[in-house]
Design a binder for these strands. Sequence first.
DNA 1: ATATTATGAAACCTTATGGTTGCAAATATA
DNA 2: TATATTTGCAACCATAAGGTTTCATAATAT
Lengths: 118, 118
Amino acid sequence: MRRDTFQAIADPTRREILSMLAFKPLNVNTVSENFDVSRAAVYKHIKILTECGLVVIKQQGRERFCEAKLEKLNEVSSWVEQYKKFWEAKLDSLEDYLQKIQSKNKIQTKGKKHGRKK
Amino acid sequence: MRRDTFQAIADPTRREILSMLAFKPLNVNTVSENFDVSRAAVYKHIKILTECGLVVIKQQGRERFCEAKLEKLNEVSSWVEQYKKFWEAKLDSLEDYLQKIQSKNKIQTKGKKHGRKK
DNA sequence: ATATTATGAAACCTTATGGTTGCAAATATA
DNA sequence: TATATTTGCAACCATAAGGTTTCATAATAT
């Protein structure tokens, strides 16, 4: 199954888990106590978070402490950042930008099914 | 069903659609021609994107042009930004930050199932 | 030694997701 | 007018996702 940062943070429960762990590492039970769903459900979320590197688990006796690796969010951050100019720039300068960028636009605009020339 | 920006960008095809539309509005067929899946599948993705405001559709004759509303990504941006200090700050200043933040930490740490006092 | 706690994982269920094909309607073109 | 194109949507399908209960195991506490 697909398992990447974007998908991991798509679930609101997982985002909450991350925000909880941002403050300090917590063991699995403590995390689950802060949610209405079962421990098993929370455990599954934590597992997904570990599978894509957003959480690392460290055993300590019978407990396992979950630690957030928020630097993994960098992937999301840089993806979003590239579009920030589209909503932060003034409209006129944005238009300039768009005109420049369109000259190197590589998107195929016609022809997949009917091979028509534009 | 849940329909929010985080979920919308969780799918790689939808992220590609957005990056395509960032350059200029395209009609539904043109977008779908750039993917291997069927037009109907791409249409569904576009529909999801419109449902959460990341894309707006403007009719023009029989064609419908899809326009990216990238400012909607602001929601994702600000969520990620709040954690940026965790991977950008130097470690020692981060520790200072963590100590400050822990004093106002409201996370319940015990007691959901057994009501034990810490 | 026995009971309790913390955890991982299996089995199962329901719904969401992402895909397909096919058809109908509206617009554009020969 | 007859044909092409562009689109939306329905019906259907397989699998993923998110949840549950239950059980086994290892570590700790009594």
